[in-house]
Design a protein around this nucleic acid. Sequence first.
DNA 1: TTGTACGCGTTATCAT
DNA 2: ATGATAACGCGTACAA
Lengths: 340, 340
Amino acid sequence: MPDDAGAPGAGARMRDVAQRAGVSPMTVSRALRDPSKVSPAVLRRVEEAVRAVGYVPNRLAGGLSSMRTNVVGMIVPSLDNSLYSPTIQGVSAVLHASGYQLMIGECGHRVEGEEGLIAAFLAQRVAGLMLHDTRHTAEALAMLRRAGVPVVETGTLALDPLDMVVSYSNEAAAQAMTLHLHRLGYRRIACVTLPSAGNERSRERQKGYRAALAVAGLALDPALVLEMPPGLASGAEAVVRLLQSAAPPDAIFFAGDVLAAGALFECQRRGWDIPGQVAVAAFDDIDILRHTVPPVTTLRLPRAEIGRRGAEVLLDRIEGRATGRVAVDLGFEIIQRGST
Amino acid sequence: MPDDAGAPGAGARMRDVAQRAGVSPMTVSRALRDPSKVSPAVLRRVEEAVRAVGYVPNRLAGGLSSMRTNVVGMIVPSLDNSLYSPTIQGVSAVLHASGYQLMIGECGHRVEGEEGLIAAFLAQRVAGLMLHDTRHTAEALAMLRRAGVPVVETGTLALDPLDMVVSYSNEAAAQAMTLHLHRLGYRRIACVTLPSAGNERSRERQKGYRAALAVAGLALDPALVLEMPPGLASGAEAVVRLLQSAAPPDAIFFAGDVLAAGALFECQRRGWDIPGQVAVAAFDDIDILRHTVPPVTTLRLPRAEIGRRGAEVLLDRIEGRATGRVAVDLGFEIIQRGST
DNA sequence: TTGTACGCGTTATCAT
DNA sequence: ATGATAACGCGTACAA
């Protein structure tokens, strides 16, 4: 292998830059990481040498030596829909602005998947982790504790946070919406969620729904509580099953995914009037719900803000600006529209 | 903070495992990376020691030593909508199945943003890169060439691919849809795209539209070509402007984002009949377009497949199973529905 | 302000 | 099948 400076795959090392600039590698290191620590003349020569040889620092070596990296890991339940996009985008924006990189993993709603990803991320020596789920395997907890890595959970305001939390309360939000429907005069309120098995958020939403019924003095009719898989088609199926039952509801609260949109489109197809025949409320603040006919009453959730604030508190800890645990409740908002 | 075996952040190293298992670090390394290279008895002792000390390998060190990593970088124009989700998910699934990690960057549709991310990814010594854009700065190209990293471009079938390409032809797709509208009898066909400045895909789609008009023998009316920013509201605005003009179109081809859905909802609100008053066709195969009333004619693009195949050809190169350049055309499909 | 010596945790290479 | 040794490229700590 010829010691040609431009051999394919043979990237320039710091010492090549140093040699060309007529200084020691250590000076190059300093010039790159804190320019104020070298003389202006040397800085200029180093920068020139960097450009000349096309030097790209090796963060594997840097990280190994300094015991810190600029990579943050993030684990979301799924990437196949847009629900987590705003949060990912918020995280990404804040991290990149501070010179950090984002590593993303998809655990497929399974805690074992999460455990594997956590192991992989810790192997990369990530500086911090953002976890959407709030349930974890015992082994995952043990690894996180041993590693001592800062963690932010974002899926819901957990009761027993692992470390830091930035989110809103799924239970409070579901309760608020159910009570909102009650205030509007609806008395047989159905609730449709995603499968609650292994999904803490679905369980919390059901809990909030039941709490609201209790507060409102309404009886809980099990026939009015449905769990459906994600997707527009599921929402359509749910509304048909509920409205064609013996005792149909006068309002349906779709507490998950795009179920409400699917139900609405199905009603349009069948000519069922909304909110005349049945009122429809949604949980997720997705864009289409504002533009349908009628537009859908829903909750405005701070998804992007969760990403931004989550990344911020994480960076505060990573960079030593803060030390304690943090729990940030970013709240939610009810958006009343034509569907109720 | 419970301070147990090991100071905070002081994870077990390979030599701790080795000591506990009564072997050398090298044997541990082998046991972990290729169990068939050590005796069964030693393997068992090593595995036990790994569990006992909670060992998590350090891939920074491993990567530095072996000169290879298991991280792939991916750069998308934006993360704030669901358009790239299927592709990301496809990439993620294939990578994780092969033990690779995905690092994601969002360049905000700017080539300078892409350049910065490429530099950051190369600094992490990524094993390969997936780039959605097909336009890059000169400096980015130089860095990629010097690094010799395998690259897959996915945004469109580029004429002069940097390395490998897995995509479909935006131009061919736009031409096909325009001709489809012509075959259906429409004669004044409008075309709405995202801003073409800095967006090669928008330009290609306009090119395909114009090519189709030429083939069909229709004149190009500049008043029928609009560029709008992304978003449902833009689609609504576009349809209003076009239909309230002096010479309105009889069909509109929305070649970007969720513009078609926005237009459709606006027509519902105003009581404009689709396709009676105006036909509507879309480019993106997003879920809602199948469920609206009427459902929207659109192209089915192989977005998830692009991610999967892209990751596959990338891994083939990374792992030395293939060497040459590859250009995979995954094609597209026209889905005729009620809106045309 | 700049340089020297050493170590970060792992793997390649060669030896046993 | 297993071990010893020497990198990998950079940053920390200290010296000049």
